Amino acid sequence: MSSLHISKVRKAYGPTEILREINIDVNDGDFLVLVGPSGCGKSTLLSLIAGLDTLSSGEIRIDDDKVNDLHPSERDIAMVFQSYALYPNMTVAQNISFGLEMRKVSKVDREKAVQDAAKLLQIEHLLNRRPGQLSGGQRQRVAMGRALVRDPKIFLFDEPLSNLDAKLRVDMRTEIKKLHQRLGSTIVYVTHDQIEAMTLATRIAVMKGGILQQLGTPSEVYNTPANTFVATFMGSPSMNLIPARIMGKNGALHFLIGDGDKTIDVELPPQPDAVARYAGKKVIAGLRPEAIGVENERSASALRNVPVTILVLEPTGPDTLAVLEMGGMEVSARLGADMPHAPGEKCELRVDLSKLVLFDAETEERIR
């Protein structure tokens, strides 16, 4: 296991900046996921860590060693690509051991390393097959096995599951999670899939336009997003962003949604001073779908009944996704599977305001 330190890293092609002063520290055994939309710079950052591209400025260190100018072969990393990159004329065993052979590792040690990796990945029965005889998931296991036998300081994964179908992607996600738990390896993993990021990571780096938007645990990124981009990018359905106004009434803060006869006035639970300073101002109220229509009493002091109109219901089995009209605006909610309401019905649903996140209406940054 090793640590990784990315300090003030920039990458530009002429006047076009791809990465802008990225600062990330990855601790021993961390599973860092770089996530963001296409073109955000996450794969470029992975290439810089791997040594497949050169920095414009900044520094990358593995443990205490600066690796900016080191060739990829000298960085002691292993990379797993989305394309698998297997040699079609070699068996699975030969593919896994090829890198070790190039490093002049003895045949006995190579065979032991292959057997150990195959056992860990449950592909012992595939060792004599060629890549053309394997499924997509099996090929990905072979690609992972080739990385594992290296016993590198850091594993790099570049969207390794994007070529798999939906069910196989879920299965392989579980296998990668198990692998990390068994080995305790340091992993940097690139994906555009926020569900992959949430389920795999110990820490998530959310990127947009070459800028690091937020770095934190899955819980921090999901529950306290740094800005409205992170709020809407992480989570499915995404967080509801509702234009609102903060008002002071009778010694308490309220937030008002909508205008005219559709205005909803909701008293807030106690708020930090930063929110109190927004009294009389416009804000953006962020509510996750599961915070609307709650059925438990865990946050009783923060629960409020809010009038809504049910517009659309989408049963999913374990729950029901709903589109509601609230204060003249459409919001999403995740309701119970056996909820008694029907489309067109007006009712009151309980909203858990302990889950409320407020953003500045102009900067779109979280108020904290």
Rank of each mutant, 00 (worst) to 15 (best):
S83R: 14
S57R: 15
M326L: 14
G248T: 14
S354D: 11
L48M: 08
F155T: 03
S332H: 15
E17L: 08
T191H: 02
V230H: 13
C40Q: 00
A12I: 10
L200K: 02
K177P: 04
V33T: 01
Q133N: 10
V351N: 05
F31Y: 13
L311R: 13
I176D: 01
L100C: 07
T232G: 15
S162V: 08
D171R: 11
P37L: 01
G132D: 09
S238I: 02
V308D: 00
G137I: 08
M90W: 07
A244T: 06
V26P: 11
L45A: 03
K167F: 12
S135C: 07
L148F: 14
Y87E: 10
A113R: 06
L324F: 04
M247K: 15
K167W: 12
D30S: 02
P340C: 04
Y278I: 06
R203L: 09
P340V: 07
G58M: 05
E159Y: 02
M1C: 09
V312C: 04
R75W: 05
P37M: 01
V294Y: 10
Y189A: 00
D65G: 13
V108G: 06
P269R: 03
L55E: 08
A143G: 14
L212C: 08
E17C: 04
K42I: 05
D30Q: 02
Y278D: 04
D273H: 13
A113V: 00
T316P: 08
I242A: 02
G260F: 04
F359C: 14
